[in-house]
């Protein structure tokens, strides 16, 4: 459905897909969180993100159809989210580092877009809160117990390879990408330093390590995620829910 549309008309689609996919992943935590207070916190973030996705899809309705068509009827290769957000939850440290990496990107990205994009202006307040959530937890896990430190470092090392993709320019979005990456590196570096964690040095830009989610190339877990997310909707073509 996206193949025939000029890319500039779809400039915001990656923002919506990032938000939808991460929201879905956070939704998988329901009933599994390490403490009840965190059930509420993770759900709040998931709901914010879902709201952001719906706002993006609403504006794309003329080009792509209803929000549900966009979410439930596109094929995997039509999704434009980065690979970072589709990564499975793993343990709580894995989820928190994913949150830190993503929110440290999404927050300044929305800030850059806010003047020209109303939906980014609304989201920027939410994402600042998400970033703080991730930061507070990274500090506690990194500088908590030996076990929590090891788990968090492991998560950072594993997710690092998906961070290079974040700064590949998205056509049609007026963002100073290099500046964005500098901001991101400063934020993550600062939080890691205070948490006693080491910023990974592994590859994130090489041809074989760089993610290509923005071009519709995803990792294996994403297909399974979509299968679960879309199955009911697709089982009843044309039905209203």
């Amino acid at each position: 459905m996206t193949a025939t549309v000029p890319p500039r008309a779809l400039a915001t689609l990656p923002l919506g897909d990032d938000a939808l996919v991460l929201s879905h992943r956070l939704g998988e935590w329901a009933g599994h969180a390490p403490v009840l207070e965190e059930e509420v916190a993770l759900a709040n973030i998931a709901l914010d993100l879902l709201g952001q996705a719906r706002a993006v899809y609403a504006e794309l309705a003329e080009v792509l159809g209803s929000e549900d068509e966009i979410a439930f009827l596109r094929e995997e290769r039509e999704f434009r989210n980065c690979q970072l957000v589709e990564q499975p939850n793993g343990d709580f440290a894995h989820t928190i580092v994913r949150q830190l990496f993503f929110s440290s990107y999404q927050q300044p990205l929305h800030a850059h877009l806010a003047p020209s994009l109303p939906l980014a202006a609304k989201a920027v307040r939410e994402t600042a809160y998400h970033r703080d959530h991730a930061e507070q937890w990274t500090l506690r896990l990194g500088d908590g117990t030996e076990e929590s430190h090891a788990r968090t470092q492991r998560a950072a090392d594993a997710l690092w390879r998906y961070t290079g993709e974040l700064f590949q320019p998205i056509e049609g979005l007026d963002v100073p990408w290099e500046e964005l990456e500098e901001e991101w590196s400063a934020t993550v570096g600062d939080v890691f330093a205070r948490a006693g964690l080491t910023v990974p040095t592994g590859p994130r830009r090489d041809a074989w390590s760089a993610g290509a989610g923005r071009e519709g190339v995803h990792t294996e877990p994403f297909g399974r995620m979509l299968a679960e997310m879309q199955h009911l909707h697709r089982s009843h073509p044309g039905a209203t829910w």
């Binding site: 403490v35 207070e37 509420v40 916190a41 709040n44 703080d132 959530h133 507070q136 506690r140």
Partner: peptide, 15 residues
């Protein structure tokens, strides 16, 4: 319940 004041405030906001 919260481990410290900062998290207590966050949890209170969410709850």
């Amino acid at each position: 319940h919260a481990p410290d004041a900062r998290m207590a405030l966050r949890n209170a906001r969410d709850l």
